[in-house]
Design a protein around this nucleic acid. Structure first.
Lengths: 330, 330
DNA sequence: GTGAAAGCGCTAACAG
DNA sequence: CTGTTAGCGCTTTCAC
């Protein structure tokens, strides 16, 4: 219609300066007229780049991850990349299959889900296809991977120390099974703080949660059944803390009067709960941005062998109303 | 490597029964050995189907939408489709550009964002390219589109009637600008319930929110400045209710003693707030499933002209602790 | 500055 | 049951 070859159209669209102004105008007019859009499939096939990244998230429903997804989608789009979403990839026993399903649709992988060991990871079609991979929010021990996460151990230490400084001596915790490495880091920070203060680490004051509200409720029920109860709890994330406090309230136990609770993440509702939740704020939107930028830089950078980058971001203690000195403190 | 032509490999992978067992085994072995994966780009180019759908969401960070996204990703994957995510498409002034960006990457569009009029919609490259489109969670007036949503007017009526039945006569509301059509439906349900009960609809008791916690806070501040205050509030969504209650609490106003509040959506934390939130539960996970199934059925069904389907799902009043009879009620 | 031609990896039609 | 062939729509040499 513009009376030029397809090659010229292609040039006009991708590098306009390589085409004479007159031709370019005719082409632009024809594009508008016909509503032409480039076929991304054909372009990808030719360029061997899908201009798409895959993000694997443990649980989209969790506001912690949906904030990250927000950041990723935003920044990827700005750089011309689409974002394909995979939910609960890691926990899925058919992982290989699923990954096969996604492989070749995406140029790189943003992995926010570390429920795999290094071996399983190496076996993924996406990884074997030599696609770049950035791990985030969680670590896989001994994996020489690009990584963006927060200082979980120090953060857990800080949160626990906050309870100790309020005068608590009987401190428990709800861990989680879902993100093994993060959790063990947090747990070791928790223990480090207790040890430093010469406080007892009691096994019956350590509960297993799963980073959901329901997990917090279950922990609270077992807590209620105890003869000797901790006066303060470090919860693995905010959801757990919400469920825990909610269940105790039903049983007439008041937070923070009867028990102090500190959460982790600082999700949006945390400050609007009653009591407003004391928590460790993770810079999750920023974490999503950093991980995306890193992945796209790798994707667009030289293909030479690179040594993995490790970016560790800081978390911040946000003191609100769910923590207070124990009643017998004077 | 299996000493067959590429056509046979293709057949072995897509319709194994069309290939002899011996050949199939050689091919399977070679696939495993080499770690071969099909190139989705080439396949899509050939089949003229990306096996990918695009979901446009107003705000991923909102748990309401992230639950829907969860359902969509799950069900699409089960039927072999990837999900590409676009956030805040509708609100974006560069919509056309963005859509151009996504067009041709996806076979169909799941639109949960109705901040466009019918004309704007018809102009989208995706729509002009004749890709199927399912609108959900919100309506576009006069648009003959496939639609999955809830009965917003009836739901708002039910919520408001609940307040009326508790004995409230002074009832206000926080609307929202973000989803114009849903909101006006809800608002008309609100007004219908008031009129039926012969109650006053006062303009100074109608606030504009934006479906965020912050919007609820702003409304609460203006509420606090009032001489004559409503004794009950119908909030456009749960986030608004959370912000509203939270801000009033700071000012010493207790919910439900001083004011009853009903929300909308029943997000996960709603039942764990203090007071636990009375709200209209929308079947959002199910809505995501229905919308996905509808879109994929259209995509895979006959290409003949079809008349649009309208699926209206029911919402349910969940009575909790944030609503009570007004103090002067006897 | 532009056109002709080749080829990215796949599948479908057609032979055999 | 399997191979040959063509072509999906694009970009990129290579000529001119």
């Amino acid at each position: 219609m513009a009376e030029v070859s397809s090659a010229t159209v292609s040039r006009a669209l991708t590098s306009p300066e390589r085409v004479s102004e007159a031709t370019r105008e005719r082409i632009t007019a024809a594009v508008v007229e016909t509503g032409y859009t480039v076929n991304q499939m054909a372009r990808s096939l030719r360029l061997r780049a899908a201009k798409t990244i895959l993000i694997a998230i443990p649980n989209i429903g969790n506001p912690f991850y949906s904030t990250i997804l927000d950041a990723v989608v935003q920044d990827a789009a700005e750089r011309g990349y689409g974002v394909l979403v995979a939910n609960r990839l890691g926990g899925d026993p058919t992982l290989g299959l699923k990954d096969y399903f996604y492989s070749n649709r995406a140029d790189g992988l943003l992995l926010f889900d570390a429920t795999l060991n290094l071996e399983a990871l190496q076996d993924l079609p996406l990884v074997r296809g030599n696609r770049p991979l950035v791990l985030s929010c969680d670590d896989i021990p001994d994996a020489p991977l690009d990584l963006v996460m927060t200082d979980n151990r120090d953060a857990a230490d800080t949160a626990t120390r906050h309870l100790i400084e309020l005068g608590h001596k009987r401190i428990g915790t709800v861990r989680s099974r879902t993100t093994p490495n993060v959790v063990s880091e947090r747990h070791s920070g928790f223990e480090r703080a207790l040890k430093r203060a010469n406080l007892l680490i009691r096994q019956d004051w350590i509960w297993q949660g799963d980073h959901t509200i329901g997990g917090g409720i279950v922990a609270a029920e077992s807590w209620l059944a105890l003869n000797e109860r901790p006066t303060a709890m470090f919860c693995g994330n905010d959801e757990t803390a919400i469920g825990f406090i909610s269940r105790l309230r039903q049983a007439g136990i008041d937070c923070p009067r009867d028990v102090s609770v500190v959460g982790f993440d600082d999700i949006a509702v945390a400050q609007h709960l009653s009591p407003a939740l004391t928590t460790m704020r993770q810079p999750r939107y920023y974490m999503g941005k950093v991980a995306t930028a890193l992945l796209l830089d790798i994707l667009e950078g030289p293909t030479a062998e690179r040594t993995p980058t490790r970016r560790i971001l800081k978390s911040e203690l946000i003191i609100r109303a769910s923590t207070a000195s124990p009643r017998d403190f004077n």
